[in-house]
């Protein structure tokens, strides 16, 4: 095995990635034991893979919901006590009372439009609040990194 020519040089990347056949791997190892240049190349590749392996695996923020997954559907009492459902129910009751007192269709329509707008606004606020919390968290991590780097320097 000769590492001076690109045609005969062992494929060290395939070697460190365990893609060489057993025979090819044995030949490469025999060469590695006698060649300091290749030895250094393999060492650097392994260091790169070791560094890559420090990347943390993230936890999934919430379980993947499967559409026909009845097991994960909320029970009736969970739905009743969920904030969105409760708000919706409240609005519905208000509409009914309003409708029974003033049965005009235009007024009912207006009340429905208003109720829908309120629920949508509430959803938007909740979403915005969630994004703000997430952005704040990202900023904190970023500041921590900068502070640590400055301290080390």
């Amino acid at each position: 095995m000769n590492c001076n020519s690109p045609d005969t040089k062992p494929d060290w990347k395939a070697y460190v990635l365990r893609e060489l056949s057993p025979d090819a791997a044995r030949q490469a190892e025999a060469h590695l034991a006698t060649c300091s240049i290749c030895h250094e190349e393999v060492a650097t590749l392994r260091l790169t893979l070791d560094t890559l392996s420090t990347l943390r695996e993230e936890e999934i923020p919430r379980r993947i919901a499967f559409v026909s997954d009845k097991v994960f559907e909320p029970r009736w009492w969970q739905r009743v006590f969920s904030p969105t459902f409760a708000a919706g129910a409240l609005v519905a009751v208000a509409i009914l009372i309003h409708g029974s007192l003033r049965p005009g269709q235009a007024q009912v329509d207006a009340a429905i439009t208003k109720a829908v707008a309120q629920v949508e606004a509430r959803h938007t606020e909740e979403k915005q609040a969630m994004y703000e919390v997430y952005e704040l968290k990202e900023k904190q991590v970023s500041n921590m990194v900068l502070t640590s780097a400055a301290l080390i320097r």
Partner: peptide, 27 residues
């Protein structure tokens, strides 16, 4: 596949070189 991966490894080898010692210390 090999071309993309090998190019990526060459780039990462250079960009991550300063971090190699830290990775080793961590181990």
């Amino acid at each position: 596949v090999k071309s993309r991966l090998y190019t990526a490894l060459d780039l990462l080898k250079v960009t991550l070189a300063p971090m190699h010692k830290t990775a080793l210390r961590g181990e």
